Amino acid sequence: MARADQIPSDLTLEITENLSPDRFIEAVRAFFGYIKEISASVTQEDPDWIVRVKEGSQLIGVDPRANFPRPILHARARIGVNALVLGNLDDAQLTDSALKNLQKLSEISLKSKSAGLPIRLWVEKKPIEIKKEIATLIEKDWRIEYRDAGTLDGRLEAIQDKSGLSFSVRDPVFSQAIRCFFPEALLPKALTAFRKRVEVSGIIHYRKNGKPVRIDVADIELLPDDADLPSLADVRGILRQSA
């Protein structure tokens, strides 16, 4: 295990076992992915990043450049992992993308050759072990779901034709993109609604905590953009005229 004085950054990944090049790159990508996802929850602007690598070690650190609220970033990175270590997935308050990256790090830990844990996340010079139980916790939670008819609204983006037609709707409540699978007959509507606010209806798949994870779309309806809605001043004017 590394010492605190060896850690190159307040956000550092420690890999304590020699991994194959492919798995090493996989671990580093998952680490960067987790940190970037956390930073997106702090501010909508993607900051420039400085990567710091400790010579002669397997310590990879990353720091946002100046004018970024680092204490909030560090706190959220720490709280997310600690909650999962304690088995509290809901308390982690992480997006699906952040969870997937931590799951990947945990799976690499699970498949290590040694009995010890090969991966640690250091936050402000303090280590948190990415335990194998994290992957099990996330996988178990994602397997449990229920389905119900309903609607979701958000901005339609990322139309794909891979393993079936799909697009994403960025839900403003859960602040994440929800995958939407739709039939060929709805393709013209989906293309017309690209990057616009929509309401999609169909069978919604939920996790046990009530978070929607995907929808089998039956219909797509365009909604007015926020810019097209009347402002507060407009509403006041309408009320005066009707008085």
Rank of each mutant, 00 (worst) to 15 (best):
S168I: 11
L156I: 03
E157P: 00
A185P: 02
F174E: 05
L187W: 05
K189P: 06
S166T: 12
S166H: 13
F181K: 07
S163P: 00
V198K: 06
E199G: 02
P183R: 05
A177W: 01
A193N: 05
R197L: 10
E184P: 00
P183Y: 01
C180Y: 00
R197G: 06
A158H: 13
V198E: 04
E157Y: 07
E199N: 12
D171R: 00
C180K: 03
P183T: 05
F181R: 09
T192N: 13
Q176G: 03
L165W: 08
R170C: 05
F182C: 05
A185W: 11
Q176K: 03
L191F: 07
A190R: 00
A158Q: 14
F182V: 06
A177H: 02
A185D: 11
L191Q: 15
I178D: 00
A190W: 09
R197N: 15
L156S: 03
S166N: 14
V198R: 01
V169A: 05
F174K: 03
V173L: 13
R179F: 05
S175N: 14
R195H: 11
F167L: 14
Q176E: 10
F174H: 10
K162C: 10
K196W: 01
P183C: 03
L187K: 08
I178T: 01
V173F: 10
D171A: 00
S166P: 04
